[in-house]
Design a protein around this nucleic acid. Sequence first.
DNA 1: TCGAATTTGTGCGTATGTATC
DNA 2: GGATACATACGCACAAATTCG
Lengths: 250, 250
Amino acid sequence: MREQPPSLRIAEALQQRISDQEWAPGDRLPSRAQLAQEYECTEAIVRRAQERLIAEGVLEGRAGSGTYVAAQRERLRLVRPLAREIGEQESFRTQMAALGKRGTWDSRSEGPLTAPTTVAARLGITEADYCVRTSYEYLADSKPVYLATSWEPYSMTSGSLVVLPEGGPHAGQGVVRRMAEAGVKVTRAVERANPGNANAEEAHLLGLLRGASVTRIQRTYYSSDGRAVETADIVVPAALCEIVYESTEG
Amino acid sequence: MREQPPSLRIAEALQQRISDQEWAPGDRLPSRAQLAQEYECTEAIVRRAQERLIAEGVLEGRAGSGTYVAAQRERLRLVRPLAREIGEQESFRTQMAALGKRGTWDSRSEGPLTAPTTVAARLGITEADYCVRTSYEYLADSKPVYLATSWEPYSMTSGSLVVLPEGGPHAGQGVVRRMAEAGVKVTRAVERANPGNANAEEAHLLGLLRGASVTRIQRTYYSSDGRAVETADIVVPAALCEIVYESTEG
DNA sequence: TCGAATTTGTGCGTATGTATC
DNA sequence: GGATACATACGCACAAATTCG
């Protein structure tokens, strides 16, 4: 039987004091120097202990300020819209309204441009084919809650008023309705969900710490002839949103 | 402009050599001692560089053996069964069969026992109410691919032949059909998906490294009167399975 | 306003443990 | 069982952010 390392012992001691409500969520812990003195160990050991608890989401470190008990923020329940009648934007706005929040989004379209290999594969086009890329930032009461980057083959909508997803008379109506305007009927929605970690840019946009836990959703809409009409990369931070899929019997 | 740390420079150099296909997936890299000599740095710096790439999933360290280029294993496409007509087991077996694999599962039921607070809340029962807990390990060609732990209130099925999910004449038929036998109609399915990391036990059961990326799904079935009839914690490792939600228009 | 003290974050080196061959 | 190679834990130095007089 090997004895457990000092840092693990300290981690458990800190965890216990939090469980005992000696420190409440949001409270600042004593500094590493103080804790080291209290537990008669080095600062490095306290540091490792805190790192463990930070990784578990129990603690939260703020540079220059202190180490805090993680305040479990309210997470938004994000019901994914798999039905074809409702799009990302409308679904988001409706759900936020039901929570008494204002659901809005910022977007920026670019194109025509060529898609990266992986995106081209998802759309069933070649890397030479042109696309329109639109970046979204979804906001609840003006605070960012998740990100999305959408790709549409230029050939789907070229020559119509719906080339730019967030421009023209059909702005903000979602892919499905805009595609209907272009004569394309969307009959299938697929979402592939993968766990991951936020990169520096995503963390900055969402106000998270680098490496924060996220779910990456690859969403693709298909028309009745089986062709992909749009695909999107959606980044949902675990700290802000909980992803829900549901189906109810009529 | 601050210069980048040595370990980051080495990480990019290694990444480049992998991109250049100097090392193919599955290949073993030179030892840290060799790389340190080649790049004229210390072994610790090579180690940090490799740690970065391991965290990104580019490399894979095997104690006592070496550091390898991560071979991207084939990931099983796991379409989540949201429809009420089909259960977890039947869905899994069907999907594996379509891939030419044999989909089976091990299970172990225990009860009556009381549920932890969080599970009791999901089931809408008190912590004193009894439940039956069933642990599943889903296997593709006898290799574990994901885990599930199911909780059913004892009151739902007591007195019927379906008390134990994997025992009796209705074994392996899934919650929905078994509940129908007990006179309970399931009308709503909800899955909450959260990113996380495997603990030691999960990693062992699934043959993964500790801390491997997983998606934790909380699935709950509800009956027509709004009561929860079953809830499950499902652990899907990113390395082995890709989670898919889809809806197709009739 | 500014700057020093405090506190956490990052990077690296070393010692030791453990798995593999 | 020895040699080799990666994993873990810890200590140290310095950078970055914050706080406060």
